[in-house]
Write a protein that binds this DNA or RNA. Structure first.
Lengths: 245, 245
DNA sequence: TGTACATCAGTGAACGCGCGTTCACTGATGTAC
DNA sequence: TGTACATCAGTGAACGCGCGTTCACTGATGTAC
């Protein structure tokens, strides 16, 4: 009775999964602009209209891929930090470096998915609200590391500015409200100046990864040196936040 | 005689200019993916095939737009620094902030052009060699500021790491060759560790601008606070490089 | 267990759209004597 | 200055392609009695 209905539903769920996976494979090859419902149907041996039994529209499929992408990168980051914690939970700059590497590795392994999440917005596509939870999943891990580091006294209160020289500038009052919002969204329990420095490092991380994935380094830094360059850059940004080495 | 021929050539050059400008306007509205030769021809009141008198292919037009874009952002940065130099050539952190702002202002005024230059690569499009000179035009200005600052002794040799605490890590030997290439391409005459920190700040600058232009801050930092946030972030990155405040 | 009905999956044709690019052509504008 | 010719600009039709989405339909699979 309801077991029969569940059987049908299970097939249905499986097909939806297969559709998004086929779509993801096409995304990996052609990029977001080349993703088409017809091509997905073709590859699955369906007639193009049949797709509409499972997916409401192209935008719907894109949204699913975006959410999946955020979750994938979030999971990679979570796993990386879990490993670090097991090794040495108090080595906060080590944990920082490990999650940075996780972002880079994932991005290099899935360049088109990364572009979908962090590259130019897809024209005509508007991300719905429910992507937000998935979108900050990686950032939440960063926030947790910094919160724990700060609680453990492992964050330099002045972000590494040399005593004698003027301290790092404090965040201007105009952005206090924004910092508060960040604090709430990613659960980061540290003072304003640390949040501000963390946001700077965060932009630096994704800027560096985007430069590498999008080819900005192509004639600048040759491939074998990039891993070392990346690690070095992330160490510098970790120091900027105030993480003690 | 040759004056007549020149007249024809002048009309031709003017039309090519008009085509790229129409294309740029369309790019601004629709983004790179929505740019089509047919649409350009339509807007100019030509039949679609007539475009091929002036432009070899769609990719050709894209290349022209990319080069123009790099030049436009490069010019904006050059002008900004020229103003700073006139005001106070020795205020190096002021000059750094001014050129950062120039990049941000240009990007916010031309989001789709910015996306074409620094966003996801356009699928199926391969940038030819001759974009390189234009592509580094802005970076050359950054390099000049840092070279002058370093010559004037205004760059902290240890990038602001507090004495007593371990110094900032030196760039690993594996990336020395890459740093040398950067030194040559953008004419930056400073030690390796300064180049490495400059590259980090450079990625931070474009990462920050990309986050803002591509909407990553949308539910995080509200618009009026963004200029202040940007300035603060760039000051922090300037300090990371070692620029004295 | 067997039949009558309802639900859902998948088909195939079609609509209307836009694209890049080619090609044979008509006219207009310049050039050479 | 006037004519014969060459060069170039722009036309219009066509090729072949792919796309998202709708719709009336045929069968198969489940459900209720």
């Amino acid at each position: 009775m309801s077991a029969g209905r569940t059987a049908r539903e299970r097939v249905r769920a499986e097909l939806i999964r297969e559709i998004t996976e086929t779509a993801r494979r096409q995304l990996a090859v052609e990029g977001a602009a080349g993703l088409s419902l017809r091509a997905v149907a073709r590859e699955m041996g369906m007639v193009s209209s049949a797709i509409y039994r499972y997916v409401a529209s192209r935008d719907d499929l894109l949204t699913a891929l975006i959410i999946d992408g955020y979750n994938a990168i979030g999971e990679a980051v979570e796993r990386a930090d879990a490993r670090s914690v097991k090794a040495d939970a108090d080595d906060f700059s080590g944990r920082w470096l490990a999650v940075c590497r996780a972002v880079r590795d994932w991005a290099l392994a899935h360049p088109h998915e990364y572009a979908l999440l962090y590259g130019s917005p897809v024209p005509g596509y508007q991300a719905p609200e429910d992507t937000v939870t998935a979108a900050v999943r990686d950032t939440v891990v960063f926030a947790r590391i910094l919160t724990e580091a700060h609680a453990a006294g492992a964050v330099d209160p002045d972000g590494g500015a040399p005593p004698g020289s003027p301290p790092y500038p404090p965040p201007p009052p105009s952005i206090a409200e924004g910092l508060d919002r960040v604090r709430v969204i990613v659960h980061m329990d540290v003072p304003d100046d640390v949040i501000a420095r963390a946001l700077t490092a965060w932009a630096g991380l994704y800027g560096t990864v985007s430069f590498e994935v999008f080819g900005q380094y192509d004639n600048l830094i040759d491939e074998p040196a990039r891993a070392g360059y990346f690690d070095h850059t992330m160490s510098l940004l970790g120091r900027l936040i105030g993480l003690k080495p």
